[in-house]
Amino acid sequence: MTALPELTTERLTLRAPTPDDLPAYRAFYAASDATVGAYRGQRSADEVAAIHAADMAHWKAKGFGVWLLRRIGDETVLGGAGLVRDDDWPSHELTWWLMPAVRGKGFASEASRAIIAYAYDTLGWDQVRTFMRDHNTPAHRLAQRLGGTRIDRQVFPDGVTRDIYAFPRETAL
């Protein structure tokens, strides 16, 4: 099997999840107030295991996915960021999640810039997008800091209306 790509930024190493990373997923969902899809709240152990397994399977099925973020030289998972494509959604998406204790420190911006560059330069995409709910103000601000422009608003298959942002190639520079 071909090794999955790793990315390195000034402070971070990004690598695809492995079976050993299930505890990091459990820690995130136990501590986070994240809303994913139409679901908000705590996840069961089986639901977290399914999310972890789906993230690993996404790499195999599509050739891209979510990387786990770690400080260079440290094995502690800070969060995840990457490119996903749900089969029933309108397109691929840049996504990210961070452990609550490390939010607001620029890790999502730093990882996202590297991932946007990867999407344009390695995958050859002509556009990188993200989708977000109205109430996710921090994500809207991050998209804008990254140079994202709101290009559409759609109701998604899960019934949630989201803004769609597109990121320019220059974001990655």
Rank of each mutant, 00 (worst) to 15 (best):
G147A: 09
P5E: 07
G37M: 08
F167Q: 08
T35N: 00
A101F: 06
E10H: 13
H92G: 11
E75P: 10
A45L: 11
F131G: 05
G106F: 15
A50M: 08
L83M: 13
I72T: 15
L14V: 03
A31E: 13
D88R: 06
Y39T: 11
V128F: 07
R43W: 10
A38W: 02
V84N: 11
E93S: 12
L83W: 10
R169S: 07
F167Y: 15
A57Q: 15
Y29E: 04
A139T: 12
V66Y: 07
P5D: 08
L123Y: 07
E170A: 15
V77D: 09
R70I: 00
M132L: 08
D88T: 12
F107L: 07
A30Q: 14
A38Q: 07
A38R: 04
R133E: 02
A24T: 00
T2N: 14
T122K: 11
P90Q: 02
A3C: 09
G106H: 14
Y29T: 06
G124M: 08
A27W: 00
V36M: 10
P19M: 11
Y39L: 01
P5G: 04
E47I: 08
A81V: 06
R70F: 02
G65K: 13
A16I: 10
G148T: 06
V128L: 04
D46L: 14
D134L: 12
L173S: 14
I116R: 01
I116C: 02
R70K: 10
A81I: 06
T171Y: 01
A108G: 01
N136S: 07
A111Q: 00
G73N: 12
